[in-house]
Simulated assay, not measured.
Amino acid sequence: MEERTINVDLCSTKKEKPKSDQLQFGRVFTDHMFIMDYTDSIGWHDARIVPYQPLTIDPSAMVFHYGQSVFEGLKAYLSPNGEAQLFRPKKNLQRLNRSNDRLCIPPIDEEFGLKAIKKLVAVEEEWIPKAEGTSLYIRPFIISTEPYIGVAPSRSYKFIVILSPVGAYYKEGINPVKIAVENKYVRAVSGGTGEAKTGGNYAASLKAQEMVANSGYAQVMWLDGVERKYIEEVGSMNVFFKINGEVVTPVLNGSILEGVTRNSVIQLLKHWNIPVVERRISMEELAQANKDGLLEEAFGTGTAAVVSPIGQLTWNDEHLFVNNGKTGDVAKRLYDTMTGIQYGKQEDPFGWIEKVKNVCKTT
């Protein structure tokens, strides 16, 4: 049965916090972490907040050998009145459990998971940076820990949450990036683990990313793994195209991660009565739309950047320049609205914000 009590062990010495203008994504971590264990005989138990520390884990732990792990990524923001708040955390926990199911990991109680995240953020509230565009990144993850070298689901796990203060993704404003379309390597196929947020998917993407980074490309755009023609994702983001007044994004097909930001963008576009459709779209169609002058905007969406405009796509040595390399009106409006809601500066008509308020800092 799910443990309902979270024990808190506060550290005696706190770390020095980095200055807001020196923050790097995922390099510095807060004073505390959340841990909860799972064993077949007990279920999830021993939920606790403890000082941030290395893990002691057996070399034969199954996560090292068979990659049974999942993770999520979300952020905590400070509102203008200094309140800590989260953006759609329930969607992240729902997706975590979908990933758990695909990786044969026992589900967590989503309500309790949210309670744990809120409590940890409350304990570490002073770590949320105050500068414009900064936030506290939240990384929940689950790893298999059974000491056994055998291909089977583990019988023990750890659910861990760590926090990292992060700077503004765009230090000099929201600028379009260059993207290389990948033709050789494949990230995932339908029926595989592409729709789960598991580490192996990202390991599979590193080679292609490394190859294009030296040529000034920010990320790789993946095509489907069967026909190598239909657009799927851009690196760690979902992707959207505005073609002749209509916004198009690849339909979820079992190999595309269902992004929380993607879902939010679709809701916003519908709210604004901007035509948006989820369907298959090929690179051939996109290239033709560009030649015909119909490709008006392209942008990626994800937790880190929120909305990342694409100014250039390179495919088969052909350069597709989008909107003269400038940020489009729809991408800018989406970015401003999403961040406005996240930081509590704009109205939240969808009920997306969860306040951290009044979470006990001790047992």
Rank of each mutant, 00 (worst) to 15 (best):
P80C: 03
E16Q: 13
I57C: 13
I35E: 14
R27E: 14
M36Q: 15
K75C: 03
E16N: 15
F34N: 03
Q68F: 03
D58N: 15
P59N: 10
D40I: 09
L23Q: 00
S20N: 12
S20C: 14
Q24W: 01
Y66R: 07
Y52C: 07
V8D: 11
D21Q: 13
G43C: 05
L78T: 06
L78E: 10
D31P: 03
L10Y: 01
I49N: 07
S79F: 00
Q22C: 10
L23T: 05
H65A: 12
Q68A: 02
D37H: 15
V63T: 15
L55P: 04
V70L: 12
S20D: 15
F71P: 07
W44Q: 05
M62F: 01
V50Q: 09
P54R: 06
S69P: 08
P59D: 10
L10A: 04
D40P: 00
Q53E: 09
A76H: 11
E72N: 02
K17D: 00
V63S: 14
F25Q: 02
R27C: 02
W44M: 03
Y77N: 04
S79I: 00
D58A: 13
Y38F: 15
P18A: 04
T39H: 06
F34Q: 06
W44P: 03
F34A: 09
K15G: 00
M36V: 09
V63I: 14
Q22M: 06
P80E: 03
K75R: 14
L23I: 04
Y38T: 05
G43D: 08
T39Y: 03
V70G: 03
S20R: 00
V63A: 15
D46T: 10
P54I: 06
I42H: 13
E72M: 05
V63K: 11
F29T: 12
L10Q: 09
D46H: 13
H45Y: 15
M62G: 08
F64T: 08
T39W: 01
L10V: 11
S20A: 15
I42R: 13
S41Q: 13
V8H: 04
A61V: 07
A76Y: 08
R48N: 08
W44A: 04
S20Y: 01
M62V: 01
D40K: 15
C11D: 09
M36K: 08
K19A: 13
S69V: 09
Q24H: 10
P18M: 06
V63D: 11
P18D: 06
I49R: 05
S41I: 02
W44T: 01
Q24S: 10
D31G: 05
V63E: 12
I35V: 15
L74I: 09
S60T: 12
F71K: 07
L74Q: 11
T56L: 13
Q24T: 11
R27L: 11
